[in-house]
């Protein structure tokens, strides 16, 4: 009885202590000062980005009428919608074909793993014009893929499917690598346990691995989408028309000068930043689990 009272007393004191700390307005905030030397050189990157964005923003605010006119332009809206939608299509294709590849790479012990990973990374190291040429060679009307596809009525040259093909090609490594890392973080023992409980490999993948890697999959999709909508060189080689936003910005820059192009660039930044923020906040709690097991 005595010990119970002591324990209760102790617990109350502890709780009071916690409340007191929470209410204390003079509570010291603890910053890890040892991290500052790392932040100083790194802040250059942040500073340059903020300066560039700030300069662009100030110019647009000073000439808000011109910006509003550009933002309301039918061709601009069409290019924006086309870019965002084509990027989404590329991500959708990647989620269907890139997810299984990422899982294979995460789990295989094959000696060919390194070679496959290098092939996946090829678009990362190539100049984007070269990536565009590769896509064009494959998807043109006489290409290995383009020829049979054109036989069933799907044309890639100067068409929406061409844009999606170029975007998919250049963004594939971003998606596959991010998702592969996500799968690698899921212990293979969880799948093994599931399989000895009667689950097939595919069922274990869908019910265990996929949910536990959701965050990385969403991050990979966001990265790939960001890469897709920013693509220019690879896209114009296979499809100058219909114009994606980066092609339109280049066109306006060469025909109307920097004043025309910067308004478009600002619009693009605002929209992309908004979409990124929205997706990140919606998916913030996705696949987050406590893995202290």
């Amino acid at each position: 009885m005595h010990s119970v009272q002591v324990e209760k007393h102790g617990l109350n004191q502890y709780n009071k202590g916690v409340r007191m700390v929470e209410r204390n307005p003079h509570r010291r905030r603890h910053y890890d000062r040892s991290l500052i030397p790392f932040l100083i050189p790194g802040s250059t990157i942040i500073l340059v980005t903020i300066l560039a964005l700030g300069t662009l923003t100030v110019i647009q605010i000073n000439d808000i009428e011109r910006f509003l006119r550009i933002a309301g332009d039918h061709a601009v809206l069409h290019a924006l919608f086309l870019t965002i939608f084509a990027g989404m299509c590329a991500v959708m294709i990647l989620s269907l074909i890139g997810t299984p590849l990422a899982y294979y790479l995460a789990r295989t012990k094959s000696r060919f793993r390194g070679i496959i990973e290098s092939i996946v990374d090829i678009p990362l190291i190539l100049p984007h014009t070269v990536a565009g040429i590769l896509v064009y060679l494959l998807f043109m009307r006489e290409g290995l893929i383009g020829a049979p596809m054109s036989a069933v009525g799907i044309i890639f040259e100067e068409a929406f499917p061409g844009i999606v093909a170029a975007m998919t090609f250049v963004s594939a490594p971003f998606y596959v690598n991010a998702v592969r890392e996500g799968f690698e973080k899921v212990p293979v023992h969880l799948e093994n346990a599931a399989r000895t409980l009667g689950a097939t490999h595919s069922y274990a993948f869908v019910t265990i691995t996929l949910p536990l890697a959701t965050r990385e999959i969403v991050n990979g999709a966001l990265l790939a989408w960001g890469r897709s909508i920013g693509e220019f060189a690879a896209v114009i080689i296979i499809a100058y028309y219909p114009m994606v936003i980066s092609t339109l910005i280049y066109y306006r820059f060469t025909t109307g000068g920097i004043a025309e192009a910067q308004g478009l660039a600002f619009l693009m930044i605002v929209i992309c930043f908004g979409i990124f923020l929205l997706v990140r906040s919606v998916t913030r709690f996705l696949g987050r689990y406590d893995d202290r097991v």
């Binding site: 023992h189 093994n192 346990a193 097939t200 949910p211 696949g287 097991v293």
Partner: peptide
């Protein structure tokens, strides 16, 4: 036979409970 058809359940040293 694959693991799912053997009816032998494996319990590892470290818990392999599904955390989600």
């Amino acid at each position: 036979l694959p693991p799912e058809k053997r009816n032998m359940a494996l319990v590892y040293q470290d818990s392999t409970l599904f955390p989600h």
